[in-house]
Write a protein that binds this DNA or RNA. Sequence first.
DNA 1: GTGGTCTGATTGTCGGACAATCCGACAACA
DNA 2: TGTTGTCGGATTGTCCGACAATCAGACCAC
Lengths: 233, 233
Amino acid sequence: MSDPDPHLHPFDRLSVEHTSTVDRVADELRRAAFEGEVESGTPLREVAIAESLGVSRSTVREALGLLVAEGIATRSPNRGVHVASPDPDSVRDVCRARAVLEVEGVRRWPGASEEARDAVRQALVDYTAAVREGASYQRLNDKHLALHLALVGLIDSPRLMQMAESLYAELRLALAQIDRIRRNAHDQAGSHGRVLRLLERGDIDAAAADIEHHLAEAEVAILDALAHSHVGG
Amino acid sequence: MSDPDPHLHPFDRLSVEHTSTVDRVADELRRAAFEGEVESGTPLREVAIAESLGVSRSTVREALGLLVAEGIATRSPNRGVHVASPDPDSVRDVCRARAVLEVEGVRRWPGASEEARDAVRQALVDYTAAVREGASYQRLNDKHLALHLALVGLIDSPRLMQMAESLYAELRLALAQIDRIRRNAHDQAGSHGRVLRLLERGDIDAAAADIEHHLAEAEVAILDALAHSHVGG
DNA sequence: GTGGTCTGATTGTCGGACAATCCGACAACA
DNA sequence: TGTTGTCGGATTGTCCGACAATCAGACCAC
């Protein structure tokens, strides 16, 4: 059943990026949401976006459907699509869900594939490098979330990975509203290094407890900042 | 902060079901997929569905987008939407992902809310009743999956719950292709009763091990049936 | 059998159209 | 004063028709 001639499949790694108009519109809207160009709660009017981007309303509608499916926006019947506003309840839920996935990932470190573990190591390197060179606010968030995503990757389940990505999209949206999170960036780099050291040493329980504690801290930090940004302006 | 006059909000529990055309189309397509009216791999042609249901192609397109987001169907560029075909890899992935969620739910039984626990008990009652009265194949699957979903409900996270629902939609689609699964229905009722008894007794570890074993068994059963239905016809 | 061309079917995207619905303002009324 | 009825504009939900781009399959040349 195995290939007698490996030259029969020399193109397994090839692929072409088939970029549809809908995807490009969705990308642009995501970017605008993540970079804070549109506040949470802002209505995403179909005609306005269509004219602004020079595409049809049908295309915009489909792109909006994607954002809604990802949790970046919400749709109410006959009232349109709005940028999702991170109320405390949903932030709590996202944090609880990601804690489940990340802790499970940490617990599977010993049995995980070497690639998955290397992905975590590399993500930590990238993140600390970004911290050291004083990268921009969005870039730090990107690298930080990529590190946490790599922890979920230890489970080695594409579907859970995709779910985690959706969770992090919501989280990133919430973070886009809050500038003050940036202060904690340095602390978190150290904390993550400790978790990885514990893992390498084989002390899984300690690592799991550590990451759980870290996530709980992050949750209150976000909720706190959110509450302040709410009353403040 | 609490309401001085409860009569100010006497309508909190009211709601209206806003049924859009897109939703109805999506419902119909889901039903057709789950009841096996359309085989896995069948192309879902836009114009054909539109004419058949008496709606516009735009509406069908949007409904198809929903199915794709739910994992019930897949879309390939310029080639349209097809009913998802459950290859072994994706079945394995779905089973692995749901094992993560269900075991986590079981582990949280002690700290879960009484409602969540009651939901599990009720789901078991419903399932055993359906088994006893010899319900239809689809109805048994419904009740069985509802029971497993109730386990995920113990985590008390709406987002994880929604993810689990999406997983079970894929699973139900795979089961729709395989008739022989029905044979195992009775065994599983007993197995589930045992898990619940272990939970009520407080033996969480044993319950977790039990459910994990049950899920592993179910996985090989599905894979096996899938392989046979593949070569058989 | 390998490679080319042609044709029909289907999708992706567009533009316009219309009724239904929602929001805000404003008038009428108790 | 506060509630209710009405109206106009804005927006969505759905429909229709159209067209180029792309794909699958057949058909043909070599």
